[in-house]
Design a protein around this nucleic acid. Sequence first.
DNA 1: TGTACATCAGTGAACGCGCGTTCACTGATGTAC
DNA 2: TGTACATCAGTGAACGCGCGTTCACTGATGTAC
Lengths: 209, 209
Amino acid sequence: MASMTQQRTRYHHGNLPAALAEAAARLAREGGPEAVVLREAARRVGVSPTAAYRHFANHDDLLHAVKDQALATLAGHMEAEIGSGEPLADPVEDALRRFRAIGAGYVRFALAEPGLFRTAFCRTDTPDPPDPSATRPFQILTETLDTLVRLGKIPPDRRPFAEMVAWATVHGLAVLLVDGPLARLLPEDAWGAVIDRAGDTVIEGLTHG
Amino acid sequence: MASMTQQRTRYHHGNLPAALAEAAARLAREGGPEAVVLREAARRVGVSPTAAYRHFANHDDLLHAVKDQALATLAGHMEAEIGSGEPLADPVEDALRRFRAIGAGYVRFALAEPGLFRTAFCRTDTPDPPDPSATRPFQILTETLDTLVRLGKIPPDRRPFAEMVAWATVHGLAVLLVDGPLARLLPEDAWGAVIDRAGDTVIEGLTHG
DNA sequence: TGTACATCAGTGAACGCGCGTTCACTGATGTAC
DNA sequence: TGTACATCAGTGAACGCGCGTTCACTGATGTAC
């Protein structure tokens, strides 16, 4: 597998779509969605801008590819965070542990890769068809909440919209920390505490204390 | 006070800075921060692009003016929402009412004026100097939480970072509804219910049930 | 196994666009005497 | 009350830039016979 930076020698690239998407993703990583520039991606791959149009309908199509990839990476981080902790014996405790891990993975990804995070939620001309409820992380969140209801930790009347509330809290935290005013309000060493407090609050709020 | 659209007849405009800022704000309203284009603002005011440089250092300076204005408008909506409900006799109940109103005003503004809302939190080259804690809405939120602690509704150990958690929830909700995937996930007539549930959850979480 | 030919995957030059910004300038205004 | 002049607030033309996109093209590949 040839590295992106190395000189291309053959006339045919081999896997230009993937290479372009990768270069575009690197742009997103460095500068967010507005840095995803078709011509620059082509430049980095060592190919003429025109060549991109053989594989992507237009600029927005390329951006969309990067966005999907960023969302998948976010999902990966969330799942990794779940897997990184060791399961707890008590099923309730373990469900709560997973719940927190999902949120922590989310925010951690946003802080570690702000460019990709912003790209994952950027606006595109063509709307993304996939329902977020169809994605892995959302499924995991839903299942975790269902488990907590089944085990009697969350009262059934608190279940509706619980995933949206949890998502909103975690997303808001991520956004406000990544480029919002929270970062200016809060010394960086307090961020962990805020994230923990947010987790506590949502859990208390859903489980009714 | 001359309307923006009417033909300017005098050589001197009278109040070009305000007129440009207003035109730029209208652009933000219609298309968000990326629609704030210096040349277009000048065009709408009926003035040459160069004239803008007499009053704004550069494009970013103009955008910043719009951003500040959008933040002020958001603050206004929040205060209006507080004022629109009638005060409750019980001080605890009234503090909770104000707390909810702050959040509801925030989200409502975002939904009513997505372009301005996005501009209020957009990135600019020059960072905004004013600490958000210095702004009215943030002060009101802080005071309301302090009141709830004083009245014994919120345990003191839950007080730290409470305004950040509340803010994050409400901001996340706004962002995800305005242009995020929540809008696709949720029929519009359920939005009110989610907002309410978010309010309930945060309050329960902070007051410990 | 060789060859003709359709198809695929690139090139290179150019397009129009609209932007932010700068230049040397002119018209209007206000102030000192 | 008039006049000279500094200062202020605009104009108009032009700049360079980099973008997305299109055009007619050529080099490489694979398939039918």
